[in-house]
Design a protein around this nucleic acid. Structure first.
Length: 887
RNA sequence: GGGUUGUUAGCUCAGUUGGUUCAGAGCACUACCUUGACAGGGUAGGGGUCACUGGUUCGAGCCCAGUACAACUCACCA
């Protein structure tokens, strides 16, 4: 065997072995199911550190469940990410000299599918490297034919139920890309941008020289003004009530209105209201029934509604310059001031976002949210960590309607078919055929043909497909009947796997995705989509910065795997991953993980090097009994931690159990002398123990543990650790534990004495024990002699002069030193200890003599304090005796 | 600006419903140790006013209030 563990070959071998044996495959059977659906990474992506963490956690959970006897299924898949993918393909085409606008929709989609086939699978290969035990035969994609149908069906269903409507909304318009962009795609420069605030005066209608002065950064939009707003409590403008102002140049009278939105301190305290071109103004307009005048075209130029022909067709920023000059000349410009404000820019093109009113498809959220809020609040769906319940509630209670339209081609084309130009001249249907029938009925025109219908060119928001994920990956909508609103009962897969066990995802998509899946779950299945939602933290770098491509501070996960092995990286990620908190990733954690692999590997080497004898060695009995109880204790601890999703702590528990208890203590104790054989009983028990701890470690380190499992014994191909039974918690014998701990403690104290007294580790020493119960020490006596390198071990009833004493619990031990004893140093040590014990006793005494403490504290606490007092008194007595003996 | 959550050793974090002298773990650090599974190892150590200020309590790292700083999130001043 190699002296160090080399993961790369071993990992490749076992992954393909597992796959070949079909161990990842799940089909419904009589066992209980344990299902996880992967949060679909977007198809454009390569795995980043966030995915690594997320998928490691899922794999740990699913592997453990599989070993525990669940029919475990982890469904992999990707979403089509309409915005990101389309942007990527557009860029690729541009580099080839092809403009999107020169292609038909079909041609563009062909190119995109081509791209998807080529690059969309990369992420799966990466997941395999990580060890992910996904059922690859179930790989799902949000644009698969059945999935596509499901998304369309749900849209139609929601429309027929009255939840989907078409409405005017202010959207973020990218004039360059000629598309709306979502709020998330609007970026603001952190420090703001330099702007000019123009103070402009408008004449009050019907007066000669009375003016009102507003302040604006967008003077070109005055031509779309429909009101001027002031704060209702602002005394300065009380007199303007009921009056009208005249828009410069075009002299449109606009009312002075009163609205608390206006900040009195800002600018002049007067706000021009332009409902068509500002989201807040739009809302004010709604409140005051103002007309909407839209003077800006989709490409950012002004249209004839501005009523100034010289500006029509010119870009809004050019018009800004021109109109400022004209305003100045016409004495409307009172003054200008510099202003730093936040300007929204498109993430994609960098151009300034134009707020724009547009007809969009919306999903009314209020009603749909009710069950989704309730079932999270009452923990039917449990959020972990719980703190997200607050955030969740806040969002659900203030939810806005969901804009479903995206002005893109890549995605699910909205199944609305227009037969006329009127706002209501459309039908919504699952297929063009059905749409035609409906349109014929609606128009009362049976001669209407398919070519008379024009399908809405927009696609649905990507979340409008991924919110169906836990249902749609099982083809859940195939049998959905819209008329009766029932899912159909003959989908065995859906019935078996839904609801899923847990969703593991990042908190930033709690609303975009998680909340919406909960909504869809209750709407269609009348059941939660998952029992638990484990929200992982963000992966940050050492400096606490979020890892991102643009910062370049994210290591390549596959360089890491090549360097430390997948097991090393998995444990490295989890070492520093407190439940739900951010993770400060440091490569050295992976190094720690790979060292751990190596430690286990070398324990294996040790055991494999032993010869076996049939001669019995009863000395090892207490060590094995101790280990067995400790193992069960550890197992109970990890179970507890798993149930709270404290995976980092579960791993740490396993880590220190293997390193400290198994390697440093157990193996050291039972290890035969150099080139000596080991007795068969101990050997076989040790193999069993090793196997057990490998099983517990398997979810964290699947590859190494599989290799060790096969190295420990000859096994058939099908006998793999990943499908073996997870250990069950057995008996914990406190006496066995005490005995083993006593052994460990005495040996440790002996080493300490040797270190302090400068005695070589293997110089034989005589040890005397003055103990309460010799039965504790009798079984471990020979091991103490052997491992403690003792010349002798004897019980004593009195202090031993010229010795170095130490205590284990309330038992005293004396290392006889003879002449080498340093009496002064010893006295000093004892006195120090005595002072500590007296201090301790005093503090306990103080507590116990405090009437209020005795009156208020509960009985168990008081009893504990009494015990402490008694222990301290015993120790003090012993220390005093020892001191007396020194003199 | 609103809401939420943090602040414990040089670093990353525990501290389970206030009760051991409670101030912990891992990493890093210091000293010593190498024919023996592993120097990617072993043994023994040093290291913290629990952000700050008050309060509640017999008792506070833990509960309450305020302050400072940080992060997340929602809305963003024309």
């Amino acid at each position: 065997m190699q002296k160090t563990y080399n993961p790369n070959e071993i990992e490749k071998h076992w992954y393909s072995h597992w796959q070949q044996k079909g161990f990842f495959r799940s089909i419904p059977d009589e066992r209980p199911s344990y299902t996880i659906v992967i949060p679909p990474p977007n198809v454009t992506g390569v795995l980043h550190m966030g995915h690594m963490l997320n998928n490691t956690i899922q794999d740990v959970l699913v592997r453990r469940a599989r070993m525990q006897g669940f029919n475990a299924l982890w469904v992999p898949g990707t979403d089509h990410a309409s915005i990101a993918t389309e942007a990527k393909v557009v860029r690729m085409l541009r580099e080839q000299g092809i403009l999107k606008s020169s292609l038909t929709r079909e041609q563009f989609l062909d190119k995109t599918w081509e791209w998807k086939e080529k690059y969309g699978g990369i992420i799966f290969e990466q997941l395999k490297k990580l060890g992910a035990s996904c059922d690859w035969e179930r790989t799902s994609f949000t644009m698969d034919p059945l999935y596509y149908k499901a998304v369309i069906r749900v849209f139609v269903d929601m429309y027929r139920k009255g939840h989907v409507y078409r409405g005017l909304r202010m959207v973020n318009w990218d004039c360059e890309a000629q598309t709306t962009v979502s709020n998330e795609e609007v970026i603001y420069n952190e420090d703001g941008e330099k702007s000019t605030l123009y103070h402009l005066r408008y004449k009050i209608q019907g007066t000669n020289d009375e003016w009102v002065t507003i302040a604006t950064t967008r003077p070109e939009t005055i031509l779309a003004d429909t009101a001027i707003a002031v704060h209702p409590d602002d005394e300065r403008f009380k007199h303007l009530e009921g009056k009208f102002a005249l828009v410069p140049f075009i002299n449109r009278p606009i009312p002075i209105i009163f609205d608390t939105y206006v900040e009195r301190e800002f600018g002049t305290g007067c706000l021009k209201v332009t409902p068509a071109h500002d989201i807040n103004d739009y809302e004010i307009g709604q409140r005051h029934n103002l007309p909407v005048i839209d003077i800006i075209n989709d490409n950012g130029t002004l249209n004839e509604l501005c009523q100034m022909p010289q500006y029509v067709g010119k870009d809004r920023f050019e018009v800004r310059k021109l109109i400022v000059e004209e305003l100045k000349a016409a004495t409307h410009l009172v003054k200008t001031e510099e202003l730093i404000n936040k300007v929204g820019r498109s993430e994609r093109t960098g151009s300034i976002i134009e707020p724009k009113l547009s007809l969009q498809w919306f999903l009314a959220m209020k009603k749909l949210c009710e069950p989704a809020l309730e079932h999270v609040m009452n923990d039917d769906v449990r959020l972990i960590p719980e703190k997200y319940k607050n955030t969740y509630r806040h969002w659900m209670e203030n939810v806005r309607d969901w804009c479903l339209s995206r002005q893109l081609w890549w995605g699910h084309q909205i199944p609305a078919y227009y037969y006329g130009t009127g706002d209501t001249d459309f039908v919504v249907a699952e297929t063009p055929q059905e749409a035609l029938e409906l349109a014929q009925k609606a128009t009362n025109n049976p001669t209407l043909t398919a070519t008379d219908l024009k399908q809405d060119p927009d696609v649905l928001d990507t979340w409008a497909s991924s919110w169906l994920w836990p249902i749609a990956v099982f083809d859940g909508f195939e049998n959905y009947d819209m008329a009766t609103q029932t899912m159909g009962s003959n989908n065995t897969e859906l019935n078996y796997y839904y609801p899923t066990a847990v969703l593991v995802t990042a908190p930033e998509i709690l609303f975009f995705w998680v909340a919406r899946m909960v909504i869809a779950g209750y709407e269609y299945m009348d059941a939660r989509p998952f029992k638990d939602v484990y929200l992982t933290g963000l992966v940050r770098d050492k400096l606490g910065r979020k890892m991102s491509k643009s910062l370049g501070n994210s290591p390549d996960p596959f360089d890491l795997i090549a360097k430390y092995g997948a097991d090393g990286v998995r444990t490295g990620m989890l070492f520093s991953s407190p439940a739900g908190n951010d993770l400060m990733f440091d490569e050295s954690l992976c190094e720690q993980g790979s060292k751990f692999s190596n430690k286990i590997w070398n324990a294996l080497r040790l055991i494999k090097g032993w010869d076996i004898t049939n001669e019995d060695n009863p000395n090892n009995q207490p060590v094995m009994a101790w280990f067995e109880s400790k193992f069960n204790q550890m197992l109970a601890n990890t179970e507890q931690l798993y149930s709270q999703y404290r995976l980092s702590e579960a791993l740490t528990t396993v880590y220190s159990f293997i390193w400290d208890d198994f390697c440093s203590t157990y193996l050291e104790m039972i290890k035969p002398d150099y080139e000596q054989p080991i007795d068969r009983t101990t050997y076989e028990k040790t193999l069993f123990f090793f196997e057990q701890i490998m099983k517990v470690a398997h979810p964290f380190m699947p590859f190494l543990t599989e290799e060790v499992y096969h190295q420990l014994q000859n096994r058939t191909d099908n006998d793999c650790i990943m499908v073996s039974a997870y250990p069950k918690i057995g008996k914990i014998d406190p006496n066995a534990i005490d005995c083993g701990e006593a052994l460990r403690d005495v040996l440790s104290k002996l080493r300490e004495v040797r270190a302090k007294k400068n005695i070589k580790p293997r110089d034989p020493l005589p040890l005397f024990a003055k103990v309460a119960n010799t039965a504790t020490y009798q079984p471990i006596k020979s091991l103490l002699i052997k491992k403690g390198f003792l010349a002798s071990f004897e019980y004593a009833t009195d202090d031993i002069p010229n010795s170095a004493p130490f205590m284990v619990g309330t038992d005293t031990f004396y290392v006889a030193l003879g002449d080498t004893m340093d009496i002064d140093a010893e006295r000093e040590r004892l006195q120090k200890d005595l002072a500590y014990q007296i201090g301790f006793k005093d503090s306990v005494n103080k507590k116990l003599s405090n009437e209020k403490f005795v009156a208020n504290a509960n009985a168990i606490v008081i009893e504990k304090e009494r015990q402490k007092l008694a222990d301290a008194e015993t120790k003090i007595k012993l220390l005093e005796e020892s001191l007396a003996n020194l003199n």
